[in-house]
Every structure is written in structure tokens, then in C-alpha cells.
């Protein structure tokens, strides 16, 4: 189940080069512009621990300010895109992604509780933030699927999304209410709800990384099963897939990725929709390639988006979610259109 080996190698190489390119651009552009060659050299030397003879300020900007930001954007982008690909395959629904399903909102509620109410759970300490986000995200997913199954057994595309939007707007309002009650400025609320990877530093990268790795591994280990699940649970079973176990693995993996991403960056919408869709268009629907390619290109996509968000109307910085929504919402509309057309053609 794969593209021709040589072609596959080429595509992955291109993906990594694209990601690397976006990171170099990401660390070079900004209020202080740094030549790309210089930032590339700073990065190269930093990786191998070689001392660099370039302006110290540049080094600080690149390694301490912009690189963690780019890395965080990359992690969040990869996480959301992989989660999106997994949700779409599992639910057989091209419109599903962490945002449209309301999972992001669920995770955000958890993050808000920790951030704005100052919760800290014993034992896990700093990891309270991602852990609570992941749990609330996971719970939201269960409420959503339970709710949809309650409405109808068949899990229709539109019903899932409609339920996701209902849950999403409800939770969004609860979050706004909570933040307003804590007396924070409204502008900050919007900024957080629209998502941002600004001013987080290396701490947030380390905070997210372990959950990212576990989540990514869970999904990478379920790629073949995702292919089978696209044909429906009954068929997947007859092909030998232990559907109960795999479903939990996939939902857990996607929740880990979504929850940890939302915990460090707020709700960034549509990444999980746009990226897997584009990958499918370019390289086909086989999850064996789709999942890792979504991760690579999702990472690059969000790094570039972040650069755009902070340079478009500089010095004012846009929430990154604004850019993803501007790109994502029309794509969502287009997908809905195609989905309806396809269904009409079939029936």
C-alpha cells in the first residue's frame, strides 16, 4: 500500500526541505531582519555545537526568540494536521478536524481553567496545562460521538460537523464567560481564542513535546488500520482489524495531539482540515503516506502562517488563527460543496 518507493522518497525529501526552508525564513524575518544565510549558519552551528562568529544579538534573536517560536508553530502544525487526518479517516468524514469537531474548544476550556484560574495539579506540576487540556479534549470527543450516535446510528458527515459546531460555540461562550469573570481584558481573550504561538519560549516546546511524540506514535502505528476503517467498521473487522482497540488508539492519539497543541497555542482552526486535504489531492488518500506527510507539511504550513501573522501588518501582530481561518474556511466550504455533489451523484 504505497506510492512507488522512489517517488515516495522524493516527496518526503521535498517535504523536509520545505519545512527546513520555512524555519529558516521564520527565524530570519521580523522587526529585525536577519540575512537568511546568517540564520542558516547560526542554526547549523547550534545543532552541532560549533561556536558562531556572528553578532550576539542575532544569535539571541534566532535561537532564543524566533527558533522556539518556529519550533512551537511546527509542532502545533504537525499535531493538528495529523489529528485532522486521523479524525477524517476514522469518521470517514472529509470535513472533520479538531476544530470543526469541537475538540479544540474542549481542550481550550481545560487550558483556560488552568491558565486563568491558576490551577495546578499535584505531582504533574507544570504538565497540568497539557494534561488537563488533553483530558477535556478527549471528554469533548466522547460527548460529541455519544451525542451524534444518540441522534442517528449512521454518523452522517453533516450531523457530526453540526454537532461539533454546536459544542464548539457552546464551549467558546463558556470560555469567554470564564475569562470575563476573571477580569482579563477582552482583547487578550480574543487573541487567545484565535490562537497564537507568540512569546512562549522553549518551555512550551518542552511542555508539548512528550505528548506530541506519544500521540504521533499512536497514529503512525494505526495508518493501515485507518485505511481499512475508511471502508467502515464492519469491513475493517473482516479485514482483520481489531476495531475496538484501534479506535481507542486513534482517538487517544488524536486527542493527545490536539490537547497538547491547544494547551500551548490556543485554538488554531482549520489546519487539520486544509493540510490533510491538500496532501490527499497531491499524493492520494493512503494513510501510510498521508499521516506523516500531513505532519511534515502541517509543520511547515504553520511556521509560514506564523511568519505571515506577525509581518503582515507589522508591528501589530495578528493571531495566527486569523490567517488559518481566512485560508481554511473557504476550503471547508469547498469541501462541503464537493461532499454534497459526490453524495448526490451516488444516490
Amino acid at each position: 500500500m504505497f506510492l512507488k518507493k522512489s517517488k515516495k522518497f522524493l516527496i518526503f525529501t521535498a517535504g523536509f526541505l520545505f519545512l527546513l526552508g520555512t524555519i529558516i525564513v521564520g527565524v530570519s524575518l521580523g522587526s529585525v531582519s536577519i540575512p537568511m544565510g546568517a540564520s542558516a549558519q547560526i542554526l547549523w552551528n547550534a545543532i552541532w555545537g560549533i561556536p558562531t562568529h556572528i553578532d550576539e544579538t542575532y544569535q539571541t534573536i534566532v535561537l532564543q526568540i524566533r527558533l522556539p517560536r518556529a519550533m512551537l508553530a511546527a509542532l502545533v502544525g504537525a499535531a493538528l494536521a495529523m489529528a485532522g487526518a486521523a479524525f477524517q479517516g476514522l469518521l470517514r468524514n472529509p470535513l472533520a478536524d479538531p476544530y470543526t469537531l469541537g475538540v479544540s474548544s474542549g481542550a481550550a476550556l481545560g487550558a483556560v481553567l488552568v491558565l486563568f484560574l491558576g490551577w495546578t495539579l499535584p505531582v504533574i506540576g507544570d504538565f497540568t496545562l497539557p494534561v488537563v487540556s488533553i483530558i477535556t479534549g478527549f471528554l469533548t470527543l466522547f460527548v460529541l460521538l455519544g451525542f451524534v450516535r444518540f441522534i442517528e446510528r449512521k454518523l452522517t458527515t453533516e450531523t457530526i460537523i453540526l454537532a461539533g459546531i454546536i459544542i464548539s460555540s457552546f464551549l467558546g461562550s463558556v470560555i469567554s464567560l470564564l475569562i470575563a469573570l476573571t477580569g482579563e481584558e477582552l482583547r487578550q481573550i480574543i487573541s487567545w481564542l484565535m490562537g497564537s504561538v507568540a512569546m512562549r519560549g522553549w518551555d512550551y516546546v518542552w511542555l508539548m513535546l512528550p505528548f506530541f511524540i506519544v500521540g504521533a506514535l499512536l497514529l503512525m502505528a494505526s495508518r493501515k488500520e485507518l485505511n481499512a476503517l475508511v471502508f467502515g467498521e464492519d469491513t475493517a473487522k473482516t479485514l482483520g482489524v481489531n476495531t475496538e482497540r484501534k479506535r481507542v488508539m486513534i482517538l487517544a492519539g488524536a486527542s493527545l495531539l490536539t490537547g497538547s497543541a491547544v494547551a500551548v497555542s490556543g485554538t488554531i482552526g482549520f489546519v487539520g482540515l486544509v493540510v490533510p486535504h491538500l496532501m490527499r489531492l497531491l499524493f492520494g488518500p493512503d494513510h501510510q503516506s498521508l499521516v506523516p506527510l500531513s505532519a511534515i507539511f502541517g509543520a511547515g504550513f504553520l511556521v509560514i502562517t506564523d511568519v505571515t501573522a506577525r509581518t503582515l501588518i507589522a508591528p501589530t501582530e495578528l493571531p495566527i488563527g486569523v490567517i488559518t481561518a481566512i485560508v481554511g474556511a473557504p476550503v471547508f466550504g469547498l469541501l462541503l460543496f464537493h461532499e454534497r455533489r459526490r453524495r448526490i451523484k451516488v444516490t
Partner: peptide
């Protein structure tokens, strides 16, 4: 299916 696999990809699922 919501996504259109190629014939070969579908047949390969049989090897799972």
C-alpha cells in the same frame, strides 16, 4: 468511501 483509493490500494488491504 469518503476518499477514493486506487484499485491497487484497495486490494492491498486484503494483505493486512
Amino acid at each position: 468511501t469518503a476518499f477514493s483509493f486506487t484499485v491497487r490500494e484497495v486490494v492491498e488491504l486484503g494483505r493486512y
